[in-house]
Amino acid sequence: MTTPAAPSATGSAARADALLASFAAAGYAPAHPSILQPAEPFLDLSGEDIRKSLYLTTDASGDELCLRPDLTIPVARDYLASGKAGEPKGFCYLGPVFRYRDGRASEFVQAGVESFGRKDSAAADAEMLALGLEATAAFGLKDVEIRTGDVGLFAALIAALDLAPVWKRRLMKDFNRKISLAQDLQRMTLATSASRTDYHGVLAALAGSDRKAALALVRDLISIAGATNLSGRSNAEIADRFLEQSTMAGGALPKETVMAIERFLAITGEPDDAVAQLRALAADAKLDIATAIDLLEQRIGFMAARGLDVASIRFATAFGRGIDYYTGFEFELHARGNGAEPLVAGGRYDGLLTRLGAEAPIPAVGFSVWIDALAQAGDIA
């Protein structure tokens, strides 16, 4: 058996430069954000697992900095600082990012596109997918698996259900963590008033409060008590467990509500079929999620208008990329039958710029390209 030759570094760089030029020709201005970034936005916005992969340091004043682990947040921060925040602007980029990856290089090259301020969300989403597919084609990859989802649909479902606010927050948090979500759904059917503790009222009060503030309070109480480690768990882990118990203070949910969530999460297949299943679910369960379904249908139409083979796209309501700031359309492009890690991936993040300091919400969508992985997949193909 012949071992595939390693991709040419020179050839890969040339194709990456050509890809960046094609993004620029499509109307996206090249961006060059600083390699050294404030760590806080990544820690707060990218998900709970990001800290273990960051390369961290501090400046002279003690502020925590990191080598940029991706380029979406740095490009967004520069856009907000440009004085053009809120105006429709598009950017492309190509450069190194730094992230600990067990057994793989921690420095690798990433390209991508970010689009800010466009009001035509469905058309912008379809354009990102089309540009992502152009990236795979530029590296000679013809057989691509397209995986898509929409966390906005799940958010619409949760908003439409008769759920306590604590459960709504918990389920949205767990959407990208399938094991936790499955466990929560089971607990929601099993929780009973018999499980109440003497401090049930305290738990219920914490459940309705801001999570970061509640977590700080519990940590302070543990510190005041002088505890440092119980059963091998840190104070932070104990505090998290206590807040998890507070979530259960809301009591059990009707079985039909949990069944509606489970039916929603089981929808998968061609996008048009998914739309039909979603409309049937909404009608059967009397759920007001028509606006979110309409947006999905519009997006499918714009994809078809761009010449994409919609029937070849796999849509799943349970699909999520594990990044907390995504708010809508999400996608990944994979070499078919060759790899769990995406070669191109992205999505919509309409809430991110507000959390980074924008005075008003700014629509945003984009994607990243893993150049080395794409070059290798293209050469093997």
Rank of each mutant, 00 (worst) to 15 (best):
T192W: 01
A249D: 01
D220K: 10
S195N: 06
A225K: 11
E237I: 04
N229A: 09
A191T: 10
S231W: 09
V258I: 14
M248V: 03
A213R: 13
V218G: 07
N235M: 10
Q245G: 02
R233N: 05
G250Q: 12
S223G: 05
T228V: 13
R211E: 11
G208Q: 05
P254W: 00
E237W: 02
N229I: 01
G251Q: 02
A216C: 02
E237P: 04
E244P: 00
R211P: 02
Q183L: 12
G201P: 00
S195G: 15
L206R: 14
A252F: 04
A249E: 04
V258E: 03
N235F: 00
S209W: 06
L253E: 02
A227G: 03
T197N: 09
K212R: 15
V202W: 12
I222R: 04
T197V: 14
G251K: 03
H200G: 06
T192N: 11
S193T: 13
T197E: 08
D198C: 01
E244H: 08
A204H: 13
G250E: 04
G251L: 02
T247E: 05
D184N: 13
I238V: 15
S234V: 01
S246A: 15
A205K: 15
D210T: 09
L230C: 05
L215K: 07
I224E: 10
R196E: 14
A236Y: 01
